[in-house]
């Protein structure tokens, strides 16, 4: 009983100590550790907010086995930049009620943040944002990718997204005839 009690107390002490920290440590699938502002993580990620509230954050690095180090670095970078920028009311409302609030254009720094990423990094960040329930980051990254599709032909879009064309020539021709107005510029 005493051992258990002692263990319980230690656990309690560790949790209290952790609750006092301003940052949380996240561990990528390849074992790298990243520090992120606890406030920003809780505000921007529903999954991390749930883990922080539920006390399931590991002081030695919370395992995020689905996220590679490059994507996690970008996630953390985004959270920290967000913590340092003055969040506008628009951003807060967008991240809270994503599915009902109308889309808010990315702010200048968010635009720059996604513009510097390679295609691969951007796609990985979409996955990470979705996985962590980071609605605003998902918004910004998906917006960037949808902008990348502008002015591209179906072939070019397939190349960007690494998608195999599973239509037959006849099927494509049928669509082109049915919706000819969309192909006048071709």
């Amino acid at each position: 009983m005493e051992v258990d009690k002692g263990k319980g107390e230690a656990e309690e002490t560790r949790k209290v100590a952790e609750a006092d920290r301003d940052t949380v440590t996240l561990k990528s699938s390849d074992g790298k550790l990243f520090e992120v502002s606890k406030e920003a993580a809780a505000r921007l990620s529903t999954v991390l907010a749930g883990m922080i509230a539920g006390g399931s954050i590991d002081d030695n690095g919370t395992d995020l086995k689905q996220i590679g180090s490059e994507a996690l670095e970008n996630v953390v970078d985004y959270c920290n930049k967000h913590a340092n920028s003055i969040p506008s009311a628009a951003l807060i409302s967008s991240s809270i009620s994503f599915n009902t609030a109308p889309f808010k254009e990315p702010e200048e720094w968010e635009r720059k943040f996604v513009d510097r990423l390679s295609h691969d990094a951007l796609f990985d960040l979409v996955e990470a944002a979705n996985f962590l329930g980071m609605e605003r980051l998902l918004d910004v990254t998906c917006h960037k990718i949808s902008e990348m599709m502008k002015g591209k032909s179906p072939d070019q879009i397939r190349e960007v997204f690494n998608i195999k064309n599973d239509y037959t020539k006849e099927e494509l021709e049928e669509i082109r005839q049915e919706l000819a107005w969309a192909f006048y510029d071709d």
């Binding site: 990718i145 502008k150 192909f183």
Partner: peptide, 17 residues
């Protein structure tokens, strides 16, 4: 998030796969 201002892009996207 594809822009509704460019309806042809939605059609092009539908022919991707």
């Amino acid at each position: 998030r594809l822009s509704p201002e460019d309806p042809a892009l939605l059609v092009h996207a539908s022919t991707v796969s």
